[in-house]
Design a protein around this nucleic acid. Structure first.
Lengths: 179, 179
DNA sequence: ACCGTAACGGAGTCTCGCCTCCGGTAGCAA
DNA sequence: TTGCTACCGGAGGCGAGACTCCGTTACGGT
């Protein structure tokens, strides 16, 4: 792949993240192209279909999240690591994209599934560390936390939510986890 | 309005609820017509636009929920009332529709806003009763609970979720509310 | 500097879904 | 029963957005 093409691919992915993050799956490929400063044909040359584009953007998102989660898993303060992780996962809005892709298709393509699983494992680590540190109850499962976090993310994504409210909700969850 | 027309209107609303509940705003008007057993024109005669149709279906949903919530607000056992309410709101999947309409338009038409506000007030009642009964902390706001519930509903709507997991998540929230 | 070719751009095609037009059907009053 | 008319249904119009074709551009190896 030529150097120019690599750069374009990157610009398209960034644009896709922005557009789909803003309008969900309703965002149009032409918007993505325009925001990336390339022609439509270029977008379709790099990603043969709209789903492929969304999928690629999602994978990228998961990877970034996983990167941050890994760093947090290594942090000494398990409790605040958990809090930060939850905040990040919600605010990063990645789930807005997840939602979009889910609505479009319904099933996860394997590559996406991998990225998602990796992230889940890392989150699991953070939870386990918090549990052994006695910060949260031991019976709490990743799935439950995941459900709550994904839910909050989606809720915030669809309706503008004041920071106070979100903080309050997160606090409720954290209290529910620890007691 | 002729008797026949009333029946059709009702059938269309029921069909709309089913279709939009299943596919979100992506559900097509023709699907609704087919499921209702009427022609497309009939749908558009009763509801001048797709948004109007979604709006009507949503209002209906809110009213049903509000009905159930009112009954729960009168229940003697404040704690279990709260639990049941939360469960119902999540399972009824109404929020799937909310989501749909929000994606389509962004702002609430007044009639819908009313229905939504009424429900919110009723939920507020249930919360206050639970608070005075000492079942939950006094500082929790309706908004926070709403956000959590809406989130769980959306999360469950987009991905199939085992009952155990949902129960676990609800438990976490309830513990977070009470302690 | 030159050339082969990877990569680009945008006009055009095609499908799909919202909405309308008009001829047909059937409720309801007399 | 008969007629008036409210109501229905399906075949289009129309616009939007996913995807393709092909002439043009410019990267990069020599």
């Amino acid at each position: 792949m030529r150097a120019n093409a690599v750069a374009n691919r990157e610009r398209i992915l960034a644009a896709a993240e922005a557009v789909f993050g803003e309008h969900g799956a309703a965002g149009s490929t032409e918007d993505v192209a325009q925001r990336a400063g390339v022609g439509i044909a270029t977008v379709f040359r790099h990603f043969p279909t709209k789903s492929a584009l969304i999928e690629a953007a999602l994978i990228r998102h998961f990877e970034v999240l996983n990167q941050q989660a890994s760093e947090l898993a290594a942090s000494p303060d398990a409790r605040s690591a958990l809090r930060t992780l939850i905040r990040t996962m919600i605010e990063t809005g990645s789930t807005k994209l997840t939602l979009a892709s889910l609505l479009a298709d319904g099933t996860f393509p394997p590559a996406l599934r991998d990225a998602s699983d990796t992230l889940r494992r890392t989150v699991h680590d953070v939870l386990t560390r918090a549990a052994t540190a006695g910060e949260i109850r031991r019976e709490v499962s990743v799935d439950e936390v995941y459900l709550l976090v994904r839910g909050l993310a989606q809720a915030c994504a669809t309706t503008p939510t004041p920071r106070r409210t979100l903080d309050g909700a997160i606090n409720i969850v954290l209290t529910g986890l620890s007691h």
